[in-house]
Amino acid sequence: MIEINNLVKHYGTKKAVNDISFTVNDGEVLGFLGPNGAGKTTTMNIITGYLSSTSGTVKVNGHDILEEPELAKKDIGYLPEQPPLYNDMTVIEFLNFMCDLKKVRKADRKPMLSEIMDMVKISSVSDRLIGNLSKGYKQRVGIAQALIGDPKILILDEPTVGLDPGQVIEIRKLVKSLSKNHSIVISSHILSEIQAVCDRVVILNHGKVAAIDTIPDLSRRLSGTSKFLLTVRGDGDDIVSKIKMLTSIQDVSIRRSEGEYYEIEILVSNSAKTDPREAIFFALAKAGYPMLEFRSLDPTLEEIFLSITG
């Protein structure tokens, strides 16, 4: 469990972190969401003891990170934004070095290392130099490094940045499987990623907590402003007017057009009680306009902030 109380960090006159308080419960996956420069990485660096805060306290399982750093750090596995790897070591040498740093007993090493390497799928590259690995493998070695010593808390700073889509899905799966017996704090600026793995979200903006919410609550809050995008073949202006006539539609606009094909953006009003999608389908079918695509648009981070702060 991590308790964070009134955390403040100044950089010159700028407050990178401005009075943040929240708690990470045991066995929970907490998402850190925020745009670049919101203070995600700074907060994580303070939790792990890499940086010191200007004021405020961080307690890891009851141990203050500044007063009892060794006890607190023993429970934390940290994957920073840039995985801290020595390019001149092989994977297995590096992981053994990490065992030394985390004071893992000699007898426990072999089984622990082979388990971790199987889990993050790096057994096949264990004898290769880290410098020669691809970005995806380096990221996995970074995760393996964080898992050594069986820490109860994992802190992962943007673990999927720079990975290809297949690898992103694999890392998500890994985080899910780890969440069974770890508390995990994971940061990202991509909403869907956080939604996929987290129980609770802390949204940061300009160094402050904009919201702390569970995922269902967050989506409920966001559902007020649902948006759809559809592609239709036909007469653009007529289509827009047909949709506008339906109930609970707030705004309809043509986003793009290409000959007879129109991409139309529909904003559904907050007070809508019924799902307008069926009505839209039937209206267009009746008018004889074939619908080629119909999907809901994920709210962007900016929209989330607008809906939360505004």
Partner: peptide
């Protein structure tokens, strides 16, 4: 890699 020195026990 200095992160390792600050964040390990």
């Amino acid at each position: 890699t200095e992160v390792l020195y600050y964040t390990n026990p």
